[in-house]
Amino acid sequence: MKMKSALALAIALALPAAAHAHIGYSGRDLGAFDASGGSITISNQAVSGNYGWADGLDDDFGDSHRLRAFRFSLTTTTTVTFSVAANAGATATSVGGLLPGFSIYEGLAHLAPFGADHDGAAASVDYLASLGGAPKEGAFRALNDWKISNDAGDPLTVFSFRGYAADTDLDGFVTGSFELGAGDYSVFVGGVNYVAQLETTRPSYGMTATLAVAAVPEPETYALLLSGLGLIGMVVRRRSMR
């Protein structure tokens, strides 16, 4: 027990002070969507540092404070497209130059009346300590499931990885489409410039995020599609018999 506590303390000391920021969705709730689909754009958000997403790729994980969390809900299986663009004027203090990356997870962080999740919560630190390996910089993982909790020690929030996209063109824009089932989802957005961790300052990089949910075709649409395919098949067969 003492060894576990010592390891947990070591991880806590290894975490940067900013890791104690909490995960929330204030101003970043993209809404709930049904079979009719729809879209929404949020343009007034920013993230500190240009490396938060990339930092979640390595074995010491990443500091969730360096990302921004968005949320949305689906009532049916459909295709969603999420896009992020750098936006220097997103906030009064933001700058341009974000190289965005994002990951989509099924699951939501603890919401009120529960306490907000953060990397430095004792339950989070204990969990990270139990994983062994290199001391963790935070709980965030860009391409895997991950867990985190709050100061009340409530059951760990589980973020189940569903997909990602990264700005490999380095043009300040990224987009990706995913087929997702009914449920609640979180999207974590951050920078893909891993070496930006070496910068002595971490400016606030502005961003614009857009979620588009495809409408689910009505049964009549499927019927028309099938009948059309049937007609095409008949034409092909007749031509082959000539």
Rank of each mutant, 00 (worst) to 15 (best):
H118Y: 07
W146V: 00
D126L: 10
T81L: 07
S124Y: 01
I104A: 00
S5F: 08
A10I: 14
T93V: 15
I42Q: 13
G153S: 08
V216N: 01
A166H: 08
Y25W: 11
L111A: 13
I23F: 00
E218W: 05
G31V: 09
L128Q: 03
A152Q: 14
W146Y: 08
D58A: 06
A21Y: 13
A215N: 04
I40S: 04
H20T: 13
L156T: 03
P16Y: 04
A14T: 04
G176D: 04
R202N: 10
Q197G: 02
Y105K: 04
T201L: 06
F82M: 10
V125E: 00
A32T: 06
R71K: 06
H118W: 03
P135S: 01
I42Y: 12
R239Q: 15
K2Y: 12
D184L: 09
A85Q: 11
L13I: 07
F114G: 08
S186Y: 05
I148N: 02
Y25H: 06
S83C: 06
V195K: 15
F114V: 08
G31I: 13
I148G: 01
L67Y: 01
A112M: 09
H20D: 14
A196I: 09
E199M: 13
M1K: 10
S39D: 13
G101M: 08
N44L: 13
T91D: 12
V235W: 09
G133K: 04
A212E: 13
A129E: 04
L180D: 01
A116M: 10
F178I: 04
A12D: 11
Y194E: 02
L67H: 02
A196T: 07
S94Y: 09
L98A: 02
D119N: 02
G24L: 10
A142T: 06
S48G: 09
L13E: 08
L67C: 01
F70H: 05
N44D: 15
F114R: 14
E179D: 14
R242Y: 11
A46Y: 14
D58V: 07
L9D: 15
M1D: 10
L229I: 11
A88W: 06
A223S: 13
G31E: 12
E218M: 09
R242Q: 10
G107A: 04
D59F: 10
I40Q: 06
G52W: 01
S39Q: 14
D58S: 09
L57D: 04
D169V: 09
S240N: 14
Y105L: 02
A116K: 12
F161K: 05
P100K: 12
A215P: 03
S103I: 10
M3D: 15
K147H: 12
A14K: 12
L9R: 15
P100T: 12
M207R: 05
I104Q: 00
T210W: 02
S73R: 15
V189Y: 02
A121S: 02
F61R: 07
G132C: 08
G56Y: 02
T79E: 03
F188T: 04
V80L: 06
A214Y: 09
G233R: 05
A8P: 00
D184K: 11
H22K: 15
A92V: 14
R202D: 05
A14S: 10
Y105C: 01
D126N: 10
M234C: 12
D59W: 07
S73W: 09
A112Y: 11
T76R: 08
E179T: 15
H22Q: 15
L131W: 03
L57Q: 05
D29R: 04
L211G: 03
L225V: 13
F161C: 01
G153H: 09
T81Y: 08
H22C: 12
T79M: 04
